[in-house]
Lab assay of single mutants.
Amino acid sequence: MEVRTIKVFTTVDNINLHTQVVDMSMTYGQQFGPTYLDGADVTKIKPHNSHEGKTFYVLPNDDTLRVEAFEYYHTTDPSFLGRYMSALNHTKKWKYPQVNGLTSIKWADNNCYLATALLTLQQIELKFNPPALQDAYYRARAGEAANFCALILAYCNKTVGELGDVRETMSYLFQHANLDSCKRVLNVVCKTCGQQQTTLKGVEAVMYMGTLSYEQFKKGVQIPCTCGKQATKYLVQQESPFVMMSAPPAQYELKHGTFTCASEYTGNYQCGHYKHITSKETLYCIDGALLTKSSEYKGPITDVFYKENSYTTTIK
């Protein structure tokens, strides 16, 4: 009895394709271990004539594949690729409408935090270190965002349907971005203890939790000093293409032309909904596939993004 075979390709990165001759009487799992086709788990399936010449994702289970996976995804987590594939199996079914010149995501599976993050990423200057993220990001900007969303979920250790947080998501993504040249110098002034300067680099240099107003941050924000008295913390120097200011959701007025974009969060910790506000020729609110415009805006804002380049204080 002759062994019926077909020729397929296996890959971990969709760049390096490895030619395989597979036995049609055995499952993919018996031949390769966990195997995925377009995100779908085909591990328990036997090869079919229609699979001839198709590319299958496999887990990096030998040295060659491990090197290829690390170079593309910059992670050695053995569960990463499987999590990416199972997320992709959902995100490829989502709709990605162009809204006001940006790629958004039609609401499904509690994905409003991903839509808000995706919209924000198209408006701030950011370059990702893992080629996987950078490639998928370019495709997302062009309207094909399924891979990018699935990668975000995998890097953030999230599953489809789980509630997510924009600030946490951005923080994970910033860790995989090139923020080497970003720098922030802060000064804390206390009447009792004097003053202390701190220099922050990388992710810490672009994120701040405690106030939404970048102007206020430049002037000074009140913080408790270690001595128990009130101290003032203010920005001395900022070198970065953008800054992200966050605070627990509270009524906040966004003035046209003073910011790049913002995240609105309605609801409580267990259950809520994100919308995205962007400042173009007027203010726009993007909620999944829905767009509304207004000249002014007041609502429960939790993150505001500002364009920056270089700032030095005039406070002496």
Rank of each mutant, 00 (worst) to 15 (best):
4 R>P: 14
7 K>N: 10
9 F>C: 12
12 V>Y: 06
15 I>R: 12
21 V>M: 14
25 S>P: 06
26 M>S: 08
27 T>A: 11
29 G>H: 09
35 T>A: 08
36 Y>P: 04
36 Y>W: 15
38 D>W: 12
42 V>N: 09
44 K>M: 13
44 K>R: 12
49 N>V: 13
54 K>C: 14
55 T>W: 07
70 F>R: 08
79 S>W: 08
79 S>I: 14
80 F>S: 02
84 Y>M: 03
85 M>G: 05
86 S>Q: 15
88 L>E: 05
90 H>I: 13
92 K>N: 09
92 K>H: 06
93 K>A: 08
94 W>S: 02
95 K>S: 15
96 Y>K: 03
96 Y>I: 02
98 Q>T: 14
103 T>I: 10
105 I>R: 03
109 D>Y: 03
111 N>W: 02
113 Y>H: 06
115 A>L: 04
121 L>A: 09
122 Q>F: 02
124 I>G: 03
125 E>V: 04
139 R>I: 09
141 R>N: 08
145 A>W: 08
146 A>V: 06
148 F>I: 08
148 F>T: 04
148 F>Q: 01
152 I>C: 07
153 L>V: 05
154 A>N: 05
155 Y>V: 02
157 N>V: 05
163 L>V: 12
165 D>I: 02
172 Y>A: 09
173 L>F: 01
176 H>K: 10
177 A>C: 14
181 S>P: 07
185 V>K: 06
185 V>R: 06
187 N>Y: 06
187 N>Q: 11
189 V>T: 11
190 C>R: 03
194 G>L: 02
194 G>Y: 03
197 Q>R: 10
200 L>P: 03
205 A>D: 00
208 Y>N: 08
213 S>Q: 03
224 P>V: 14
228 G>N: 02
228 G>D: 00
234 Y>I: 10
237 Q>S: 14
237 Q>H: 14
242 F>G: 04
248 P>L: 14
252 Y>L: 08
254 L>V: 04
255 K>L: 10
264 E>D: 06
265 Y>F: 15
270 Q>A: 14
271 C>R: 12
274 Y>D: 00
275 K>P: 00
276 H>V: 02
278 T>H: 07
287 D>S: 03
287 D>H: 00
290 L>F: 11
291 L>N: 13
295 S>T: 13
296 E>A: 15
298 K>I: 14
299 G>V: 06
306 Y>V: 02
306 Y>H: 01
307 K>G: 08
310 S>N: 09
312 T>K: 09
313 T>K: 14
313 T>S: 13
314 T>R: 14
314 T>G: 15
315 I>V: 13
